[in-house]
Structure formats: structure tokens, C-alpha cells
Amino acid sequence: MSTTPVYLLAALLFGLGVIGFLRQRNAVMILMAVELMLNSANLTFLGAARARGDVDGSMMPLFLIVVAAAEAAVGLALILALFRSRRTLDIEVPRSLRD
């Protein structure tokens, strides 16, 4: 088995994430598309790690998952704050950072 199917799958998943990111207007759905893209990056790292046979490539997903957790926590807190002040999650609505 070669790395090509791994990279192809990661590229397709990343493309799906990009489509979702550009297509959605709901902030939660956009965050979910970002999670999809992060996962495709993880898959690429793991494929490369298995091809090279060293541990560095499999280290990155570990950190990426932590960063994704932090990103989700802060992003969802931001979404809650947005909803509290605007009563909507449509990203077209907010025009300023102040309330």
C-alpha cells in the first residue's frame, strides 16, 4: 500500500471542508467544516509518518487534536456570546465587535 490513497482521501476531505466553510452562513456549521479540515490534515501527517517510519509525523496529530479542542472551546464560547447579543448565528449579521 502506498501513500497516494491516503493523500487523496485527505485532499478530498479537505475540499469538502473548504466547500462547507464557504457555503454555510451558520457559525456552528462553519466551525464543524473547520474541524473536518483539521482532521484531513491529521490524516496527511499520519500517512507521511507511516511512509517515513519516524515518530515526528505522528506527534503532530496529538498536538493538532489539543489545538482543535482549544479552538472548539473558544469558538463555541464566542458563538454563545454572539447569540446572546444578536439573537442569531448568521455570520452576515454582526457588523462590529462591540455591542
Binding site: 500500500m1 502506498s2 501513500t3 497516494t4 490513497p5 491516503v6 493523500y7 487523496l8 485532499a11 500517512g47 507511516r50 511512509a51 517515513r52
Partner: peptide
Amino acid sequence: AAAAGGEAL
């Protein structure tokens, strides 16, 4: 990805 050719896992 296809042009780069695969490395064996």
C-alpha cells in the same frame, strides 16, 4: 498528490 507518486507505507 497523484503526480507526486506514492511512497510505500
